[in-house]
Simulated scan of single mutants.
Amino acid sequence: MTSFKKHWGLWLAAVLLFVLFFSSSMTYKEQTTVPLLERLLHNEPFKQALSGIHFNYAGEQQSIAEVGYFKFVEFFIRKGAHVSIFFLLGLGLTQGTFMYQKNRWLHWPLMVLSCTGVAAFD
């Protein structure tokens, strides 16, 4: 078995940590996908379905009426990306370190705390 196949989880975790570190150093304006969404979704599909959704997040009202269609769609894309990247980070850490754990019962709490810690500092 090649070293990469044996340690794919650690490689995945390392790449994701680099991506997180790089993206965290950028401002919102440098990361925004609104111009791309304006080009791709210029006819605003799903606007009718999304128009009825509104909620408070970080003390601000989130809705199409408040922030506009493209920023509202971007909000869901960004939150989905956060959930996905931290899930994959946890998967990579779990797979990559499982063989090194002597106390198997301690493995899952350590992975959850590791990912939570990285998310908190992000």
Rank of each mutant, 00 (worst) to 15 (best):
residue 1 M to N: 05
residue 1 M to W: 01
residue 2 T to G: 08
residue 2 T to P: 00
residue 3 S to C: 08
residue 3 S to T: 13
residue 3 S to P: 01
residue 4 F to N: 02
residue 7 H to E: 04
residue 11 W to M: 03
residue 13 A to E: 01
residue 13 A to D: 00
residue 14 A to T: 11
residue 16 L to P: 00
residue 18 F to A: 15
residue 19 V to L: 14
residue 19 V to G: 04
residue 20 L to R: 08
residue 21 F to S: 11
residue 23 S to W: 11
residue 24 S to Y: 11
residue 24 S to I: 07
residue 26 M to L: 15
residue 27 T to W: 06
residue 29 K to E: 14
residue 32 T to M: 05
residue 32 T to E: 05
residue 32 T to I: 08
residue 35 P to G: 12
residue 35 P to Y: 12
residue 37 L to V: 09
residue 38 E to N: 05
residue 38 E to G: 05
residue 44 E to M: 13
residue 45 P to R: 11
residue 46 F to S: 10
residue 47 K to H: 12
residue 48 Q to T: 15
residue 48 Q to N: 14
residue 50 L to S: 01
residue 52 G to T: 13
residue 53 I to C: 06
residue 53 I to F: 10
residue 55 F to P: 05
residue 58 A to Q: 13
residue 59 G to C: 04
residue 59 G to D: 01
residue 59 G to M: 03
residue 66 E to F: 11
residue 69 Y to A: 09
residue 69 Y to N: 03
residue 71 K to L: 12
residue 72 F to Y: 04
residue 72 F to W: 02
residue 78 R to K: 13
residue 79 K to M: 06
residue 81 A to F: 13
residue 83 V to P: 00
residue 84 S to V: 12
residue 84 S to I: 10
residue 85 I to F: 06
residue 85 I to W: 02
residue 86 F to I: 06
residue 86 F to Q: 02
residue 87 F to T: 11
residue 87 F to E: 02
residue 88 L to H: 01
residue 88 L to V: 05
residue 88 L to C: 04
residue 91 L to Q: 02
residue 94 T to L: 15
residue 95 Q to F: 11
residue 95 Q to M: 12
residue 95 Q to H: 07
residue 96 G to F: 04
residue 98 F to H: 10
residue 98 F to C: 05
residue 98 F to I: 09
residue 100 Y to Q: 06
residue 102 K to N: 06
residue 102 K to I: 06
residue 102 K to M: 05
residue 109 P to K: 03
residue 109 P to N: 04
residue 109 P to F: 06
residue 110 L to F: 13
residue 111 M to H: 05
residue 111 M to N: 12
residue 113 L to P: 01
residue 113 L to N: 03
residue 114 S to Y: 10
residue 114 S to K: 06
residue 115 C to Q: 04
residue 115 C to P: 01
residue 117 G to A: 12
residue 119 A to T: 07
residue 120 A to T: 12
